[in-house]
Computed example of a mutant assay.
Amino acid sequence: MPRPSLSENAAKRKGEKLAQKTVGAAKSVIETASNLVDTTKKPRKRTTSNASIPTLKFTTPNKVEGQLPQFNPQQYQVSDPLSPPKSMPQVTQSQFVSASRIYDGGMRALQLTGKAFDLTRERFVVEGKKAKTFSAGVQTATAFEKVKGDLTDYQIQLQNNQQKKIELGTAKLRTTTVQSIAVETEKELSEKLAQAQAGAELAQLQTQEKQTKLAEFKLQLTPQV
């Protein structure tokens, strides 16, 4: 068999290095996915409201490029389709299968992580509905208590009105009694006036009678000539 040329050996070494980089990138993806899964399992600490959110890594667009896999499109440029350059990065079949398995596992891990985020989102939605429902229940209870207060005020006002009716009846009875007393007092005073007038008239008649007797007695005492 002919020995491989230096260019072929160099291309092979480049392919092996690229495969190692690919495997390393795949491992990094798996580690990142596993870290995300672990962080979803661990209880999160409450943080204060800041301009940047520590749990979100993609805060600025200039950080996106640093997280992309290394890729040089010029290494895959082909001028002659029938004679591809031997310097093109290559991997063996076993390296391809191994790296593909790692990538597939990483994508499955990311899909599971995404499902965990979907579940957490739905949980937050349900928690929000629970809070709104509780608030509606509190508002309903408050409305019931207001109705109870209105009913209590009505009953108090009803009792006050009944007491005022009783006081009104007592006042009317008192007025009627005073009027009756006034009528009877007026009658009594009229009788006393009549009695006083009769007494005065009787006294006047008695006075006249006594004056007449006195005059007759004086005539008897006068000597006759």
Score class of each variant (00 low, 15 high):
L205D: 09
T175L: 11
T133C: 01
S28F: 07
Q90G: 08
T59S: 15
R44D: 04
V126Y: 13
L221S: 05
K210G: 01
D153Q: 12
F124S: 15
R108H: 13
E65T: 09
Q163K: 10
K165C: 04
P2D: 05
F117D: 04
A10Y: 06
F96I: 04
G199M: 07
T176Q: 03
Q162P: 02
A26T: 03
S180Q: 09
P223M: 00
E65I: 12
Q179T: 11
D104I: 06
A33C: 07
A11E: 03
K192C: 05
P69H: 01
A198D: 13
E122P: 02
P84A: 10
K12A: 06
Y103M: 09
L119W: 12
A198E: 11
Q159E: 14
N72A: 08
V225M: 13
P2N: 03
L202N: 06
A194H: 00
K21A: 12
K130Q: 14
A171P: 00
K218R: 07
F144H: 03
V91S: 07
V78M: 01
Q206E: 06
A51V: 02
P54M: 03
T60K: 14
R13S: 06
N161K: 04
S28D: 05
V64N: 07
L110N: 00
L214D: 11
L214Q: 08
E127Y: 01
K27T: 02
E184K: 12
I181F: 05
F134P: 02
R44H: 14
V29M: 06
S34R: 14
E209R: 03
M107R: 00
K146Y: 08
K130S: 08
Y103G: 05
F144A: 12
A194R: 00
